[in-house]
Structure formats: C-alpha cells, structure tokens
Amino acid sequence: MNGTTPGSGSGDEPKRDPFSSPSGDRPDQDPQSPGLPSWRESVPSESNMPPAPMEGGGMSFAPRPIVLAVRLMYVGAGLTALSLLFALFSRDSIRDAVIDSDPDLTQSEIDTAVNISYGVATVFPLIAIGLWLWMAWANKRGRSWARVVATILGGLNILFALMNITLGGFGLNTLLNLISPVLAGVILYLLYRPESGEYYRQMSAPKF
C-alpha cells in the first residue's frame, strides 16, 4: 500500500464536501451574476405594487375626478377670497349706491344701510370660503353626505350668481359671478362621474 485512500489516485476526481458551497458561490457573490437567480427578481418593486387598501376595506387613493373636483373647490375658495378683498374696499361705493337709491334718506339711515350692506358683503364671503374648504376636505375623504351637501350648495351658488349677474352692472364682482356657476357645474359633474360614485361607495362602506 502506498498510503493513499481509495479513489485518491491521479485519475479520480477529488471528492467535494457536501456541506461546502459550490466553487465560486460565496455568500457575498453578486446575485446578478449569470446562471444564478437573483433574490431581487422575487421582490416586486414599489412602483409595481398595487395600492394597499385602507383599514376597513376602503380605497387608499382618490380617483382623478375627485382630485380635480377638490382642486377646483380650492380655486372657488380663492375666488371667493378675491371677492372678499374687493368688498373690503367697496364701502364708498356702497354708500353711493344707498344715496342713489333714495336721496331722501337721513344721514343716520344712510349709515345704517351702509353698515348692513357692508357687513353682508364681507361676512357672506367668509362663510363661503369656509364652506368651500369644508367641502374640499370632506369630498376628498369620500364622505357620501359631502357630495349631497356639495350638490345643494352648488345649486344655490349657481342660482345666486345668476341673480347677481342680472341685477348688477359689469365689474370685477360680476366677472367672479360669471366664473362661479361654471366652476360649480364642473365640480358637480366630476363628483357624479362613475369612478367618483365607486369611490364614495367604498369609502362610506361600513368599517368592521
């Protein structure tokens, strides 16, 4: 015997340790090397993953018509703020209008009429701004009652705007009154799109 174990001759292939890694397969080897599956291929990228549902089964995102409607509500709030700014500097115009309507009024009556008209012209826009922002917040979250309230407010907005257009002369306030009914109509159209209705249905579904 020459001291060698069977199978260790020059013509025999060396035995491999079954617990060792294959040749060149180190744990820190690049998983993108040819012939080796990449663990990254089994993990979906974040961009390809579907949106996760919200707790309770609702949708985690608003459809495009709702997003556009909410943005237009913010535009409506901005236009109303512009109308408020215009009203703040219209006290003299209001006084002139009161005097022209009835020249026989006393100074006390004129002051009372101007104060009331000025208060209405400034308070109503503040309330309207709050309603615009409230409707934007509620409809963005898919509250079904918010769409109903927005429908009622939108109809009143269109009605009052048309009344102001027929009663007043042309000016900045009249221009805003022309934009307001168009804006309200577009918003209501977007809120009643099929995908919007599905969004309201899912977001208002009972949460278990």
Rank of each mutant, 00 (worst) to 15 (best):
residue 112 T to P: 04
residue 92 D to Q: 12
residue 80 T to V: 08
residue 89 F to V: 12
residue 129 I to T: 04
residue 100 D to K: 15
residue 70 V to F: 02
residue 140 K to D: 06
residue 137 W to G: 00
residue 103 P to F: 10
residue 110 I to L: 09
residue 84 L to Q: 09
residue 91 R to S: 13
residue 113 A to F: 04
residue 99 I to A: 12
residue 80 T to N: 01
residue 84 L to D: 07
residue 88 L to G: 05
residue 141 R to W: 05
residue 122 T to G: 10
residue 81 A to Q: 01
residue 69 A to T: 11
residue 125 P to R: 01
residue 82 L to K: 01
residue 94 I to H: 01
residue 136 A to V: 08
residue 90 S to G: 11
residue 73 M to A: 05
residue 108 S to N: 15
residue 78 G to D: 03
residue 107 Q to W: 06
residue 134 W to N: 13
residue 67 V to D: 06
residue 70 V to C: 09
residue 91 R to H: 09
residue 120 V to G: 05
residue 104 D to V: 00
residue 128 A to E: 12
residue 138 A to P: 00
residue 84 L to S: 03
residue 90 S to H: 07
residue 82 L to I: 10
residue 83 S to R: 03
residue 138 A to H: 08
residue 97 A to K: 05
residue 125 P to K: 03
residue 133 L to E: 02
residue 117 S to V: 02
residue 74 Y to I: 12
residue 85 L to F: 10
residue 97 A to Q: 08
residue 78 G to S: 12
residue 122 T to L: 02
residue 81 A to Y: 02
residue 124 F to Q: 08
residue 144 S to D: 11
residue 106 T to D: 14
residue 117 S to C: 11
residue 104 D to Q: 09
residue 72 L to K: 05
residue 97 A to D: 14
residue 81 A to I: 04
residue 137 W to D: 12
residue 116 I to T: 14
residue 106 T to K: 02
residue 108 S to K: 05
residue 103 P to M: 05
residue 137 W to V: 00
residue 143 R to C: 06
residue 134 W to P: 05
residue 140 K to Y: 10
